[in-house]
Design a binder for these strands. Structure first.
Lengths: 334, 334
DNA sequence: GATTGACTTGCAATCGATTGCTAATACGAT
DNA sequence: ATCGTATTAGCAATCGATTGCAAGTCAATC
């Protein structure tokens, strides 16, 4: 009975009009008489009929979906569970569904240069949001010339062609380090993997903060850190270095918390012996012991900008990159 | 030049055959002459042409995508960033893309009973994986009669109609509690929100573990705990209760770690004064201080079973629920 | 009474594949 | 030379919408 209505033709027959009219009525075009339109709408509601999105997409060449892609190598560990990415994806899901788009999630292992072209050719989505460009900036730049609807989260570097949204990592690194200096730190260690663009910018900022001071030592990152820095990495590093740090600037909250744990096992107190500042201001930063001082990235705002820019690009406009301001949040660890 | 090939008709013209032949050659049907087929394949490769998935889907009524849906209320906090779910989603992404399916992520606020029907009616995917059924078990059961391709992660209860994959929460709760008892705990607190099915089963298991013993007290969960239990919730609870616990069984690693932090601020040592056991065995359980004893859920295996069952159901078979064995992992917190 | 124009509606082409059926060709067997 | 049987290829319908264009209705205007 009620299950009979599958297509607009069925509904058209039921309503005694043509499929074209049904299509227009359901699409809310004011081209049709308001009474007819209303009647059709009621009927559709009653049989809870929804026109096939697929057929519409074929005709209109719109997909109604956005690809969210996280490039990560298997050799780099299980990245997709990174709480920062996940929080961002959560907000993206909200923003996109509000605008009627599905979110198609892909994780790719960028071992071939054409991973992005392949995704684009598959033609299943209207545009892409790339999260965590890591070291794939050239790939993005190469594509950006031909393919408009693509926006990336992450660091901005002078001269880049693709559109990115992110916080000012350089500034974030600087204010974090300045904060440590103000708290009296003189031997500062930076923990993070500088192969990815964002951490390396944060390190640059940190260097800038100590530039004018010759009483302060910044210990550079050993670049062999995996992007998911583990406790033993940090432990090894602290054993090797002859500088006993009194301040740690970590490139993420996760690294910072790991560092605090490692310090605890060595009997070093935070913030007594060493002060620690993180990056991101995730939920876990608030609940840790001690609560973590950190550089806040406004993830909700970031998601809104990513989607906003992408929508403009889908509409054919070009957009510039967006750089949000990071904000220092001072808590118990410094 | 190279950009001219958009449809199989273009390619057909180029190859001097009909579109039907191109379609069959590209689909790998052995109905076409192998030389013709090879030639067409080469040509497609050269112009890197891929037939429109959309048009195919319209014709074949297959979508090539799976909906992964996380039901959560806004009033229940930002659930999507729950590290357990996210780890699971990561594995699901792998399993699905291996089988050529896209992963369409939706978070829904189940404030209307028809959230699932709406998703199904939208007809954009071949099937659904529901993660974290929480209190929506009836909704799933109601749908399960009519709609085959749906599998849920989570607890299994006798008599349920829908297909679920999960660990034996009852058993997990029992072995966790037995472990605490063996370690000498006599006043045990369960922390978790028993409105959701999984935690409530874990609590049942815990009760079973102490049933035979009358020298042991189990303090029930206050049900007003939000599903994302916060530190202050736990703090409040510990203040209210007159039983000073010597063992805590937390319904998730996250809750367990939060509890350990709260205890630390009260000057209570773990595992000295109180022993704590968590649930899930996430990455964070290994790196916490002290490392967390916990009940391990094999997430990778779970993802494989979810996708496996779903594929069978898409093919028209029915499948029973899968119950994986939880495993106690003993670390420093007990 | 004819013309105009604003509103509505329907016809039919189109998006880009897939596939049942038919037709043509080749090859071996009788 | 004829027939039977595989092979191989093409025609045309189909999936379920959208939309440009044409046509019809009806009231207002000249």
């Amino acid at each position: 009975m009620a299950g009979k209505i599958r297509t607009i033709y069925d509904l058209a027959e039921l309503a005694g009009v043509s499929a074209a009219t049904v299509s227009r009525a359901l699409a809310g075009k004011n081209m049709v008489n308001s009474k007819t339109s209303e009647r059709i709408r009621k009927l559709a509601e009653k049989h809870d009929f929804r026109p096939s999105a697929l057929a519409r997409n074929l005709r209109t060449k719109q997909r109604g979906a956005i690809g969210v892609v996280v490039p990560l190598g298997h050799d780099r560990g299980q990245h997709l569970s990174d709480p920062f990415f996940m929080t961002l994806i959560g907000y993206l899901a909200d923003e996109l569904s509000e605008r009627g788009f599905d979110l198609v999630l892909s994780r790719v292992i960028p071992n071939q240069d054409n991973w992005l072209s392949k995704l684009i050719d598959a033609d299943r989505v209207d545009g892409f949001i790339v999260i965590g460009q890591s070291d794939q900036s050239e790939v993005l730049d190469r594509i950006a010339g031909d393919y408009l609807p693509l926006v990336a989260w992450g660091g901005f570097v002078q001269g880049q062609i693709h559109c990115s949204v992110g916080t000012d990592n350089y500034l974030g690194g600087r204010i974090a380090t300045q904060h440590l200096i103000e708290r009296g730190c003189r031997r500062i260690v930076f923990l993070g993997n500088t192969q990815a663009i964002e951490p390396s910018l944060r390190l640059e900022g940190a260097k800038a903060a100590i530039r004018a001071r010759d009483d302060i030592v910044l210990v550079d990152t050993p670049t062999h850190f995996a992007s998911e820095v583990s406790g033993s990495d940090i432990d090894d590093f602290l054993s090797q270095t002859d500088v006993r740090p009194d301040g740690i600037f970590a490139a993420s909250d996760l690294i910072a918390l790991t560092a605090i744990q490692v310090l605890a096992t060595r009997g070093i107190s935070v913030p007594g012996d060493v002060k620690v500042v993180g990056y991101d201001d995730l939920y876990i930063a608030r609940t840790s012991a001690p609560p973590l001082s950190t550089v806040r990235q406004n993830i909700a705002a970031g998601a809104a900008h990513l989607v906003g820019s992408l929508m403009k690009r889908i509409a054919g406009e070009t957009t510039g990159s967006t750089i949000l301001n990071p904000e220092l949040i001072v808590r118990g660890s410094t």
